[in-house]
Amino acid sequence: MSIQHFRVALIPFFAAFCLPVFAHPETLVKVKDAEDQLGARVGYIELDLNSGKILESFRPEERFPMMSTFKVLLCGAVLSRVDAGQEQLGRRIHYSQNDLVEYSPVTEKHLTDGMTVRELCSAAITMSDNTAANLLLTTIGGPKELTAFLHNMGDHVTRLDRWEPELNEAIPNDERDTTMPAAMATTLRKLLTGELLTLASRQQLIDWMEADKVAGPLLRSALPAGWFIADKSGAGERGSRGIIAALGPDGKPSRIVVIYTTGSQATMDERNRQIAEIGASLIKHW
């Protein structure tokens, strides 16, 4: 067993022997301040990774656009098919120029040779490549099948209805392509620590998230040296922004954090800054 596999296998073990965790309302004060600064709703939840206990939450059962955070769930569904012998990570998928959609920095470079399922998941999570996500959605049967996968996990809230990039439209009061912070946090925890996926697939999923290259201005910008984070960000229309993450000190994750916002007129930089400040408060009061 590799060191990384050992780390993920012992996530519940280490967490069980940690000192009790206590909620700190100071972080919620910052979440509410972010709402004021952005002029928009902000949803927040913080779960203990081992027990699933909610440590703090704000608007945990209000719907927010998922945006690209759905790509972690998508690759979880792909990995479940791999575990069941219905898919192979090494299978190569070929596609054409007509398949390319807006923001496809990886797939646009491989029109000639195609990409493997493993490479597509890596591109979808680490670079948020939209064509990679659409190609992977095709392998599982489309958005409705991802929703069905989530329902089978016990998540009857999260739903995907459309493809990239239309799913980022974020129309107010439109339930399409949305989740709730509580539902997303619980589902992410199941994917990373539950028995739904094999140990190898859980490790692969967290490795992809740990290698995320496009979430630097968010929670990662607030992390002290030595902290662990595996995350996936999302951005959408109407001032929408979000991030889902597993993080913790001492090089291992111990909490799940989900943050979503929508309806702001603020710039992307300002949305990023507010999420980073929430992260800084979380870490300060850990």
Rank of each mutant, 00 (worst) to 15 (best):
M1Q: 01
M1E: 01
S2V: 08
I3V: 08
Q4E: 15
H5G: 06
H5K: 13
R7S: 09
V8D: 09
V8A: 13
A9G: 11
L10S: 10
P12V: 11
F13T: 12
F13P: 07
F14A: 11
F14M: 11
A16V: 14
A16R: 04
A16S: 15
F17E: 04
F17S: 08
F17C: 09
P20I: 02
V21F: 05
F22G: 10
A23R: 04
H24C: 09
H24Y: 09
T27Y: 02
T27W: 02
L28P: 05
V29N: 15
V29C: 13
K30G: 05
V31A: 08
V31I: 15
K32F: 08
D33S: 14
D33N: 15
A34D: 02
E35L: 02
D36L: 15
D36V: 14
D36I: 15
Q37V: 15
Q37L: 13
Q37K: 15
G39N: 13
A40F: 04
R41S: 09
R41M: 11
R41N: 10
V42C: 08
G43T: 01
L49R: 03
N50C: 08
N50R: 13
N50L: 12
S51A: 08
S51E: 12
K53I: 14
K53M: 13
I54P: 13
I54K: 07
I54W: 08
E56N: 11
E56W: 05
E56Y: 05
S57L: 09
S57A: 15
F58I: 08
R59A: 06
R59N: 09
P60R: 12
E61K: 13
E62D: 10
R63A: 07
R63H: 08
R63W: 04
R63L: 08
F64Q: 02
P65D: 01
P65N: 04
M66K: 00
M67L: 09
S68L: 00
T69C: 06
L73Y: 06
L74R: 00
L74K: 02
C75K: 00
A77L: 11
L79G: 02
R81Y: 08
R81H: 10
R81V: 06
V82D: 05
D83T: 05
G85S: 10
Q86R: 12
Q86E: 12
Q88C: 10
Q88A: 13
L89W: 06
L89S: 06
L89N: 04
L89A: 07
R92S: 10
I93F: 06
I93E: 05
I93A: 04
H94W: 13
H94F: 13
H94Q: 13
Y95M: 07
S96V: 11
N98R: 15
D99L: 08
D99K: 08
D99T: 09
L100T: 07
L100S: 04
L100A: 04
V101S: 10
E102P: 14
S104D: 02
S104H: 06
P105K: 06
V106Q: 12
T107S: 11
T107E: 01
E108N: 10
E108H: 10
K109C: 09
K109R: 14
H110W: 08
T112H: 14
D113E: 14
D113G: 11
D113A: 10
D113K: 12
D113T: 14
G114E: 04
G114N: 05
M115W: 02
T116V: 06
V117P: 04
R118N: 15
R118E: 15
E119R: 05
E119Q: 14
L120Q: 02
L120H: 03
S122G: 13
A123S: 10
A123C: 08
A124D: 01
M127C: 09
D129H: 00
N130K: 00
T131D: 01
T131F: 05
A132T: 02
N134D: 06
N134E: 02
L135P: 00
L136T: 04
L136I: 09
L136E: 01
L137S: 05
L137G: 04
L137M: 11
T138G: 13
T138N: 15
I140V: 09
I140K: 03
I140M: 07
G141T: 05
G142L: 01
P143K: 03
P143A: 07
P143T: 07
K144S: 15
E145M: 12
E145Q: 14
T147M: 07
A148M: 15
F149Q: 07
L150A: 08
L150S: 06
H151Q: 13
N152S: 15
N152I: 10
N152R: 15
M153L: 14
M153G: 08
G154R: 07
H156Q: 14
V157A: 13
L160M: 12
L160S: 11
R162P: 01
W163T: 10
E164S: 00
P165D: 06
P165A: 07
E166P: 06
E166M: 14
N168M: 06
N168C: 06
A170W: 11
A170Y: 12
P172T: 12
N173A: 14
D174H: 04
E175F: 12
E175K: 12
E175Q: 14
E175M: 14
E175V: 15
E175L: 14
R176Y: 07
R176M: 10
R176S: 09
D177V: 01
D177I: 01
T178S: 12
T178W: 01
T179C: 05
M180S: 15
M180R: 12
A182K: 14
A182Q: 13
A182V: 15
A183K: 08
A183T: 12
M184N: 01
M184C: 06
A185C: 07
T186N: 13
T186V: 14
T187Q: 05
R189Y: 15
K190G: 13
K190I: 08
T193L: 11
G194Q: 10
E195V: 07
E195S: 14
E195D: 14
E195K: 10
L196V: 14
L196Y: 15
L199V: 15
L199R: 10
A200D: 15
S201K: 07
S201E: 02
R202W: 03
Q203M: 14
Q203I: 11
Q204A: 15
I206S: 12
I206V: 13
D207N: 11
W208D: 05
W208S: 03
M209R: 00
E210T: 10
E210A: 10
A211V: 08
A211L: 13
K213L: 13
V214W: 05
V214F: 05
A215T: 06
P217V: 11
P217C: 07
L218A: 04
L219P: 04
L219N: 03
R220P: 02
L223M: 11
A225L: 12
A225S: 13
A225K: 14
G226L: 05
G226Q: 09
G226A: 09
W227N: 01
W227F: 08
F228C: 07
F228D: 03
F228T: 07
F228N: 06
I229G: 02
I229L: 07
I229M: 08
I229C: 10
A230L: 05
D231A: 06
K232H: 00
G234D: 00
A235N: 05
A235T: 06
G236W: 01
G236R: 01
G236S: 07
G236T: 05
E237D: 14
E237T: 11
R238M: 14
G239A: 04
G239C: 03
S240G: 12
S240M: 03
R241S: 06
I243N: 02
I244Y: 02
I244G: 02
A246C: 12
L247D: 00
L247R: 00
L247Q: 02
G248P: 00
G248F: 01
P249K: 15
D250G: 13
K252E: 14
K252A: 13
R255K: 12
R255S: 03
R255V: 06
V257W: 02
V257H: 01
V257M: 05
V258N: 02
I259R: 00
I259S: 01
I259F: 07
T261H: 06
T262Q: 07
T262S: 11
S264D: 04
Q265C: 09
Q265K: 15
T267R: 12
E270I: 13
E270M: 13
R271T: 11
R271S: 08
R271D: 06
N272S: 05
N272W: 01
N272M: 03
Q274A: 13
I275D: 00
A276T: 10
G279L: 04
G279A: 10
A280V: 13
L282Q: 06
L282C: 11
I283S: 06
I283M: 11
K284L: 13
